[in-house]
Design a protein around this nucleic acid. Sequence first.
DNA 1: CCGCATCCTGAGCGATACTG
DNA 2: CAGTATCGCTCAGGATGCGG
Lengths: 131, 131
Amino acid sequence: METSCDQDGPWDVYLKSCPCRDVLDLLANKWTALVLGALARRPHRFGELRRAVDGISQKMLTQNLRTLERDGFVTRTVYPTTPPTVEYALTEMGAEVGSHLIALSSWSQANFDRIRDARSTYDDRTLEPVT
Amino acid sequence: METSCDQDGPWDVYLKSCPCRDVLDLLANKWTALVLGALARRPHRFGELRRAVDGISQKMLTQNLRTLERDGFVTRTVYPTTPPTVEYALTEMGAEVGSHLIALSSWSQANFDRIRDARSTYDDRTLEPVT
DNA sequence: CCGCATCCTGAGCGATACTG
DNA sequence: CAGTATCGCTCAGGATGCGG
């Protein structure tokens, strides 16, 4: 594939107008990563997901799921019961990105202390610029 | 460490109030991933960065760099020349997250076709619900 | 239970202008 | 060149209510 973006080519060029932006933008969303993460663990029903991803509004959940479905990351299965049962699961693609997301999250979980330290150091330094 | 979040524990719990959110929120930003990506390739000066990350405004670049610096992902080195020279580089932590980000970007670059296909399939299907 | 539609607020971000 | 400050808008996203 000959896009302007090659992963061992210059990122500088890469950053301009490359499909990657689309995917990155996907994550530039408060919730998608969390939703994907939840689904990475196991399929969820709508309500479960709502509870799992604490703080998400129903609107955002729906919206994110639609986008993810459209992009082929999750599947939406409706069981014609009453009341309706809808199950969301990751596709293979979804699982692939999901794994990266999980890696990232694991990292942040493991290294959060370092970040916290960096923050307080920085804050201290900027508060007393001249002893 | 005993947070409510354990990487092989339930994501459901994990998602509630866990440090990971902070890091994930970092990505929930239109630009940070791109900036980190650019710096992952090599250190950059401010202007270089601006040009590398196409479309970013000077304001957002500064803002992102400040946050990344505060969180300990990048270093900011000022050379007292005229005109001023400021170089930004990744810290080791920065490089670590950076690698994950690059993995993600490489993936999206490699798989974008699949996404595109998924999209058009989805769109076609929703446009003609009943043949 | 699932999800769409509407309204409304505020953070995010871009544009512009000004310092060192 | 690098950075700060201000203004104004757009739009993500929260709250609420209705419908299948």
